[in-house]
Amino acid sequence: MTNTPALKPERPFFSSGPTAKIPGWSAQSLETKALGRSHRSAVGKARLKYAIDLTRELLGVPDDYLVGIMPGSDTGALEAAMWTMLGARPATVAAWESFGNVWIQDAVKQLKLKDLTVLDADYGEIPDLASIPQDNDVVFTWNGTTSGAKIKNTDWLAEGREGITINDATSAVFAQEMDWAKLDATTFSWQKVMGSEAQHGMLILSPKAVARIESYDPEWPLPKLFRMKKGDKINRAIFEGATINTPSLLATEDYIMALEWAKSLGGRQAMFDRADANAKIVTDWIEATPWLRNMVYDPEQRTNTGVCFVFQGDYYDSLSPEEQAAVPKTIASKLDELDVGYDFNGYRDAPPSLRIWCGGTVEQEDLRRLLPWIEWAYAELQA
């Protein structure tokens, strides 16, 4: 039996969504002047616009792109892009984990796109993105939240290509640089990398995306929550803080607090650096631990946010499939009960695994303290 580790993480929050709050977070620190007010009031719209403007500034979004707040988290923002823009030309939906597969199901079963190519890969791998025709519209997930696999680069997207590029970046923004020149619709949610409250998504549109929306009317009916046009033009008020439906101003203030914190550190580069340093701690540990393997084989495709890893070795291999599936669940549950680490079991549709969030709101010391506890819990299973 191994010795119980001496130190627990001070902030045992390792969920991949909602992710850890910013260090030092306190509800008492939230700005409250907009609370209890209409989101259509001057103060309400001003705070929503401020959240939009801070997002643009910190992410380095080009001036001629639109940034808007959408209902329904990243899912709502991404589906709004798909439902309003796809169908005008051939499309490819690429997926390598569970959420990308949801977009495939949307394209196949809901939109029933007539000229559709599905490109997928197993967990931990990336399909051959270079095979996608440049004339095609394409939907892809920059960073696989449930597999830990990210794209290496955007070389597979040509400059000035004809197709629209729809990018689900919800576990990538504020951790990896976006190649805005090649992206037409980019989406994310507040509750991922910035650790803010859930249910609100961001939609960032290029001029080409705006032109597609204004020139194209899909053949299927659009729910109100996806409608971004006023007459034949895009409703620019949505991108100035006049949201499609009622947002939570309390959640807005929480997001603003996280953005201001990131800005105080030095902006997105500081967030990139924090995520890189955090992920290095975990990936180096995985490499040095013979009974673990990173779910992603190619080091260049390994994320710096939700690091996913699986078990291996003589003991694990001797177990039945049912017993193997129970290993990560048992470890995660045990450390949850001990207040060592919360919510870091692998995603339910992924292979049996653990997934540790390493985004910029997590502190390095908390990660260093968590890892010996995983070793201890695994040893306890074998005792």
Rank of each mutant, 00 (worst) to 15 (best):
G359W: 06
I132Q: 02
E300W: 00
S320T: 15
M85N: 11
E375K: 03
I374V: 15
P71Q: 08
A326R: 14
W96H: 14
R274I: 10
T243K: 05
W357E: 02
N153A: 13
A181T: 12
P218S: 08
P351S: 09
E214A: 14
G76K: 05
P90E: 11
L222V: 14
D217N: 11
I281K: 07
S147Q: 06
Y50G: 01
A258I: 02
K208H: 15
L203K: 05
R161F: 03
Y65C: 01
F239E: 00
A51Q: 02
E287Y: 14
F239S: 01
V67Q: 04
A107Q: 04
V296H: 02
V139S: 06
R293T: 09
R161M: 04
D135S: 15
W156Q: 03
V193D: 06
V67C: 10
A121G: 07
E10F: 01
I213D: 05
Y50A: 04
Q134K: 05
A277P: 04
K229M: 09
I281E: 11
Q382A: 05
R369S: 05
L205P: 06
A158N: 02
N278V: 12
T141Y: 00
F14G: 00
P299Q: 05
S15L: 09
K233G: 08
F140D: 05
D184R: 09
G17P: 06
S26V: 03
M1W: 00
T186R: 00
W261K: 10
K49D: 01
I356G: 03
D128C: 11
K114D: 08
E375F: 01
D115F: 04
A175K: 01
P372E: 11
T92S: 05
T330L: 12
